[in-house]
Design a protein around this nucleic acid. Structure first.
Length: 794
DNA sequence: AACCAGGCTTC
DNA sequence: GACGTGCCTGGTT
């Protein structure tokens, strides 16, 4: 029979002595199914040192065959390696696990230059070779077989013919389950060996909400909670499970708690298939797609702070002011206090609703990324940008008959990057931020940059591009691997955008295509960083170096053109220019296109923007009167809340009202409040991450000594933990006075430290420019100057 | 003055 | 289970 199905995931199992590919899918009529392909075999390639060795090598390779997993085929085939035609031996065996053994044995043979494509996971090999991308529709000839009882699906089929892609964009109805756990945390960072899970909140595709609570003595027993959770999953049977930082927190935590209770966290579609850590640090659940939305939220560059509430607000899912927000370190207090427990439950529900809402907004994008890269949905979010692009490149290489290079360990070699201009300090009115569109990808295409186009010998500038500063040469023709891939990505994106023009923007079809064009853009934009990444299969340092050199040349020339037109340039970084917004800007944009062959566009307009002398830091007032704070302390996580609040209000006050006096008053009041003990301790906590084992630190930083004190107190500190410390009264270095916030009483706080090293510097960073002195900030005065008295002198 | 460390999230 | 470099800052040595 012919079956149409939507692919969720691909895995494999070895049955007897035969590998079976399992395609997890949803059939056209909505059934959850598995299609078994028994006819796919693992293989890899052997590159000879010279082609004369081929026939000898062929027979030596064949002789290595063993009975456990015989070499069922070895033949000479024509491939390309970095663009050059090459003859290699293709070796095919039976059991995927045997590939490694054969690879090692063959590497040792005389006359073998290298063995490639022996490090590609079997299920990914299948996805590449059959072009069976997840999150896409296919059709195939199948035969229904008796369903194995170990599989929690409704039907099982065996693949008989070939799979054929279908041109259907709309996915079937997928069951998505969002979940969120709350943990009892009376001692800072919760530890699964002592702190129970107290709440699990759930929300499914139908919008049903559920709360599972800890029970028993003091409501701190979570054994039943865990088994209720497992039962819920079996009953609802989700295809996709989403959480926020669930790979980093919820799943590992639940796994540890289950182990303590001796419960098997059997939540998959294979009986006994428990979640386990898999590739890219994601948690894999057999037969279901476990997606951590926090990984995907990292794509949203507009949001600086990637917390659940902020991301949900940005995506229009839930407003922060309309939801319950509880600081994480207070969770246990709400749980212990019967009058506040309901509020905690409400908080947890708001979290799970936000999680589900974020899933609705970004899963469509992730699904497109999955279908483009071939990485299953649960991996595509967890895979770093480099790996996503790499899988796309590997699929492209297969189509071009190019061999996929091995991942090799290389030393890290830094190279020169972009230009950052010295800002013109002060307040500027009416400023346009211009951006080169996809500067680095455009450069890679324009100059045909890549490992296969680099020319080592003589080459004149007729047939080669010669790179400024470096003198490296890249041949103009034919297009290299990177250029071909980038041009394909860009032309695919263009045709999608053309197709979108004839669609209603509210239609499902339009939205799906929009997500696809965004995914294409992201892949293209990752290409330069990927080429300069030492871990990349297609790493090429000369190429990455050439791209930044050409970028520096491009922006310098653009600045020259702006000046020629008499347009004042205020600031610039890599591919952006802040210029005064005047009618000549249009002319400038045209001139850049004509002279440099690259597109530059107005990205943003500020009514007012303020720079100190520092690079990468500014505050801007947008056309709709919101304030952008970039780079300053207010948007960083390692400053005390009180200092961030002060700086944010100062920024807002000077930009919108232009009143320095008001800003000074504001700081005065906070200083006074602090001195008189009216600021709560949690606004004084400074949070910093422990990034390596404590004994590896060469200096005694405050957060490190606070962490050591936490251990003395019987606590546990792991790499990655955030340590919250408060500086207390006394003498000596700060680190000797940094204590974990949980042991500090408000009356022991070194108020002067917070005034001198947090509030004053944060406020002064902005106000210093307006002639405000440290003294004025400490004590009230009667200044009446406004921002504009100072603003025009810059 | 020269260095190291951090810059991000979940509870 | 690292896409790049550049930059700022505080604290220690």
């Amino acid at each position: 029979m012919i079956l149409r199905f939507y692919v969720l995931d691909v895995s494999y199992e070895v049955v007897g002595r035969e590998p079976h590919i399992l395609i997890w899918a949803i059939s056209e009529d909505g059934e959850r199914i598995v299609i078994r392909d028994k006819n796919f075999r693992p293989y890899f390639y052997v590159i000879p040192s010279n082609e004369g060795e081929l026939s000898r090598l062929l027979s030596e390779v064949r002789r290595l065959s063993n009975v456990r997993s015989p070499i069922i085929n070895a033949e000479v085939v024509n491939k390309r390696f970095f663009g050059r035609p090459i003859k290699v031996i293709k070796v095919t065996t039976v059991i995927p696990e045997a590939v490694r053994e054969y690879r090692e044995a063959i590497k040792k043979l005389k006359g073998v230059a290298d063995v490639v494509e022996a490090d590609i996971r079997f299920s990914m090999r299948y996805i590449i070779d059959r072009d069976l991308t997840p999150c896409s529709w296919f059709e195939a000839e199948v035969a229904e077989m008796r369903k194995r009882p170990s599989l929690r699906v409704s039907k099982e089929y065996e693949l008989v013919g070939n799979v054929k892609p279908l041109q259907i964009h709309k996915p079937p109805d997928i069951r998505v389950l969002a979940f969120d756990i709350e943990v009892y945390n009376p001692r800072g960072t919760p530890k699964p060996e002592r702190d129970p899970v107290i709440i699990i909140s759930l929300m499914n595709s139908e919008g049903d909400l559920n709360v599972i609570k800890a029970s028993g003595n003091e409501f701190r027993s979570d054994a039943k909670l865990i088994s209720d959770f497992i039962n819920y999953i079996h009953t609802y049977d989700p295809d996709v499970i989403v959480g926020y930082n669930s790979n980093g927190f919820d799943w590992p935590y639940l796994l540890e708690r289950s182990k303590i209770h001796g419960i098997q966290l059997d939540v998959g579609r294979v009986v006994g298939g428990v979640p386990r850590t898999s590739v890219y640090g994601h948690i894999s659940i057999p037969g279901r797609l476990n997606v951590d939305l926090y990984d995907l939220a990292e794509e949203i560059s507009e949001v600086k702070i990637k917390s659940l509430d902020v991301v949900a607000e940005y995506l229009g899912v839930m407003k922060r002011i309309e939801r319950v927000l509880i600081p994480w370190y207070e969770i246990y207090r709400y749980w212990d206090d019967p009058s506040r427990r309901e509020l905690l439950i409400k908080y947890s529900l708001d979290d799970v609703k936000s999680t589900k809402g974020i899933a609705d907004k970004i899963l469509p994008f992730a699904m497109q990324l999955s279908s483009l890269t071939g990485l299953p949905l649960d991996q595509v979010g967890a895979a770093s940008v480099g790996f996503r692009l790499e899988w796309y490149l590997m699929r492209a290489a297969f189509k071009y008959n190019e061999l996929i290079p091995n991942r090799v360990e290389r030393p890290y070699e830094p190279y020169k990057g972009a230009i950052v201009l010295e800002p013109v300090k002060g307040v500027h009115e009416n400023i346009a931020v211009l951006d080169f569109t996809s500067m680095y990808p455009s450069i890679m295409i324009k100059y045909n940059i890549g490992p296969d186009t680099y020319v080592d010998d003589e080459c004149d500038d007729q047939s080669c591009h010669v790179i400024p500063e470096l003198g490296y040469k890249f041949r103009k023709e034919p297009p290299g691997f990177y250029k071909s891939v980038l041009e394909t990505l860009i032309s695919m994106r263009k045709s999608i955008r053309d197709a979108m023009r004839s669609l209603n923007p509210d239609s499902v079809e339009y939205k799906i295509l929009d997500e696809r064009q965004k995914a294409l853009k992201i892949l293209a934009n990752a290409s330069y960083g990927y080429m300069g990444w030492v871990g990349a299969r297609w790493y090429f340092r000369y190429g990455a170096e050439a791209v930044t050199a050409l970028g520096r040349e491009t922006i310098s020339k653009a600045i020259g053109l702006a000046r020629k037109l008499g347009i004042r340039v205020i600031y610039g970084d890599t591919d952006s220019l802040f210029v005064e917004y005047c009618p000549k800007v249009d002319e400038f944009i045209k001139l850049v296109m004509d002279e440099l062959g690259l597109e530059i566009k107005v990205d943003k307009i500020y009514r007012r923007v303020f720079f100190t002398e520092a690079k990468k830091r500014y505050i801007g007032l947008t056309l709709n009167n919101t304030v952008d704070i970039v780079g300053f302390e207010a948007v960083r996580g390692d400053w005390a809340e009180i200092a961030k609040e002060v700086q944010e209000s100062v920024a807002y006050t000077v930009l919108t009202e232009g009143k320095v006096t008001r800003a000074i008053e504001l700081v005065n009041n906070v200083v006074k409040d602090l001195k008189e003990g009216r600021i709560s301790l949690d606004k004084l906590v400074i949070w910093k991450t422990i990034t390596k084992p404590l004994d590896e630190y060469e200096v005694s930083a405050p957060h490190v000594s606070a962490a050591k004190r936490l251990i003395e107190l019987g606590g546990k500190v792991d790499v990655g933990d955030k340590i919250g410390y408060v500086v207390v009264k006394g003498s000596g270095p700060i680190s000797s006075r940094a204590y974990p916030y949980i042991v500090v009483r408000i009356e022991d706080v070194d108020v002067d430290y917070y005034i001198d090293h947090q509030i004053i510097p944060a406020a002064l960073r902005i106000l210093e420019y307006f002639g405000v002195t440290e003294k004025q900030l400490r004590t009230s005065s009667k200044t009446t100057k406004t921002l504009f008295d100072f603003g025009k002198r810059g």
